[in-house]
Design a protein around this nucleic acid. Structure first.
Length: 342
DNA sequence: AATGCGGGGTG
DNA sequence: CACCCAGCATT
């Protein structure tokens, strides 16, 4: 991996933010592209918001990107472009918590701070047969203390890297490779048959369903979009005109006509297409929705606050996967939008 | 302490 | 389908 052995705190930082709750295999391509487009702190800090979010598009957890950009500008403007060099000062930065502060501390500066990520929780919980919940305050304290006592301080970078690699390749969440594990003899979980019971989590995930109908309003000039700014999923990403409902809606021609008339004052339109349903699973929600493409002769007053983007401009703004999947299906991107518009 | 934030891989 | 991933901010 390109970040292994890396000493540049900027690059370490980028890699660690990308890898938060994200598999190495998923984050790798984003990291390489990100470093190519924004090779140093200054280039990131001075980049336009949309360019940075575009580089993050599809990766998820977009607040990471927001905080990354905020922190880049903060370091450049208020810290004279100098990256903090202690755990405590790193921890003060937006988007950097205990894990990332420890990671940058050890990888970039060789400081004696143990990383405690999902891998470390799992390895320690199994090896010591510790059943305290890893998502409780007590559990986090216990494992963080344990990890720091175990830390090989003479080379914290190698130790931290090794423990995470071990968790990712041998002591995996499912089907761990205990047969080939060098710690098998001393592993409490293995010797008591509790490998599959550890680590313990106490919180259960509750998923709610949301129903989206997107109206893709097209004019001769382009497509109407807006930026999502609410404290909700996909903050800072773009979308079309959205109708959200508490249950699935089965739009008929009549319903569409009525909605456009009553809600938006639109009477002159033509319905191009009603898509098949799309679903997407997020951490706490399941999304179900359709896209209704509508051609308008003019932009109505009720939609004046939307941006009217042509195909080129459309490719520059970040969309959630849910929308991009449909755009791909429709070949909106890549120049064919003109055909649809004609 | 509890909640919510994406998207993808795995079994 | 359930679970998890080089976590964190917000309330």
């Amino acid at each position: 991996m390109p970040w292994k052995g890396e000493k540049d705190p900027y690059k370490i930082w980028i890699s660690e933010i990308i890898l938060q709750q994200t598999r190495v295999t998923q984050g790798l391509a984003y990291y390489n592209n990100f470093i190519e487009v924004f090779p140093d702190l200054k280039s990131l800090a001075e980049a336009p918001n949309e360019a940075v979010f575009k580089a993050w598009e599809g990766l998820g957890y977009y607040s990471r990107c927001k905080h990354l950009l905020f922190t880049a500008r903060y370091i450049l403007d208020d810290l004279e472009g100098k990256f903090p060099e202690t755990y405590e000062n790193l921890l003060k930065l937006k988007g950097i918590g205990p894990y990332t502060a420890a990671a940058i501390s050890s990888f970039a500066y060789g400081l004696p701070h143990a990383v405690v990520d999902g891998n470390v929780f799992r390895v320690l919980a199994r090896f010591f047969g510790e059943a305290i919940a890893i998502d409780s305050v007590k559990g986090k304290e216990l494992f963080t203390g344990l990890a720091n006592r175990l830390l090989f301080k003479e080379d914290s970078a190698a130790y931290n890297q090794a423990l995470m690699d071990f968790g990712a390749t041998i002591c995996k969440p499912q089907l761990p490779d205990c047969f080939n594990c060098v710690l098998q003899q001393e592993c409490v979980a293995y010797n008591s048959g509790l490998v599959n019971e550890l680590p313990v989590k106490e919180k259960r995930l509750i998923k709610r369903k949301r129903f989206f109908t997107y109206f893709i309003f097209m004019t001769d000039e382009g497509v109407l979009v807006r930026k999502r700014i609410d404290k909700d999923i996909w903050e800072n990403l773009y979308e079309f005109y959205l109708v959200e409902s508490s249950k699935e809606l089965h739009w008929k021609q009549k319903d569409i006509k009525q909605w456009l008339n009553e809600q938006l004052g639109i009477n002159d339109f033509s319905i191009i297409k009603i898509s098949d349903p799309y679903t997407q699973h997020l951490t706490h929600q399941t999304l179900l929705g359709r896209f209704i493409t509508v051609k308008l002769p003019i932009v109505p007053a009720s939609l004046k606050h939307f941006l009217e983007l042509n195909a080129d401009e459309l490719s520059l703004v970040p969309f959630p996967k849910f929308i991009n999947r449909h755009l791909q299906d429709q070949s909106f991107l890549g120049g064919t939008i003109e055909k649809i518009l004609v």
